[in-house]
């Protein structure tokens, strides 16, 4: 069903407060009083001063009306306009604080929880190199120990950031996937490490080991460990 009638909006005048309407009435009333009062004075001065109603007196009267309208009222309003314009600029200046700050490339916000940067330690790099070299041998035991050591390295850094918990899993749970991109893969790697640590005779393929180490490396890089 189609409705054509639009809702009837009340006029802007009736939306004003009672006091506002009265102020506006008094303002307009005073202006009209001044204008018509002047008109009356000049009417008396022009036509009732003994010269009567003729072309000359009419000219004098119209000239006076012109001056009252353009010079007196016009001058008053021009001054008012200038003052109001300055006030307008001032209001914009004050309101400018509240503008929605839209930039194409804004700086990151203060609220963004940045992981606390760790002091870059040359030993970490050395340690990591050892781990990678050990994994590169391709021997089963060495790959396993490399993964476990890489895990310990990451855990060490989680502690350094200030995360608390009994196990590494507890510490990882405090990080949100929202904040750290490589968290998902890190969990997988951590699970692999748990399998290695808890299952006797667990065999790791070279592919698994590589994936796990890449996950640890990405995480450490994102945490700016090296």
């Amino acid at each position: 069903m189609k409705i054509k009638t639009k809702p009837k909006n009340p006029s802007a005048w009736s939306q004003l407060l009672f006091v506002e309407r009265n102020i506006a009435r008094v303002f307009i009333g005073l202006l009209l009083l001044y204008f018509f009062g002047q008109l009356f004075i000049h009417f008396v001065y022009s036509f009732m001063g003994g010269q009567g109603f003729n072309a000359e007196s009419l000219r004098v009267f119209l000239e006076a009306v012109d001056i009252v309208w353009r010079k007196h009222l016009g001058g008053f309003f021009t001054v008012l306009n200038v003052l109001l314009f300055i006030f307008l600029l001032y209001c914009y200046k004050q309101a400018w604080k509240f503008r929605m700050q839209l930039k194409l490339y804004p700086p990151p916000s203060d609220l963004e929880a940045q992981p606390k940067p760790i002091k870059k330690d040359p030993k970490v790099m050395q340690h990591w190199r050892d781990i990678v070299l050990r994994a590169n041998t391709g021997q089963q035991e060495k790959m396993r120990s490399a993964i476990i050591e890489a895990d310990a390295l990451v855990d060490h850094h989680l502690k350094n950031i200030g995360l608390e918990g009994e196990h590494m899993g507890d510490r990882l749970k405090q990080i949100r996937a929202f904040q750290v991109k490589s968290l998902d893969n890190l969990w997988k790697a951590h699970r692999l490490r748990n399998d290695i640590a808890h299952t006797p005779g667990y065999k790791v393929t070279a592919r698994q080991a590589e994936r796990a180490l890449v996950a640890y490396r990405d995480f450490l890089k994102e945490m700016k460990a090296f």
Binding site: Y105, P106, P108, S109, E112, F178
Partner: peptide, 8 residues
């Protein structure tokens, strides 16, 4: 907790 702007 949500990102505050497009850079975040």
């Amino acid at each position: 907790k949500l990102p505050q702007n497009i850079t975040d």
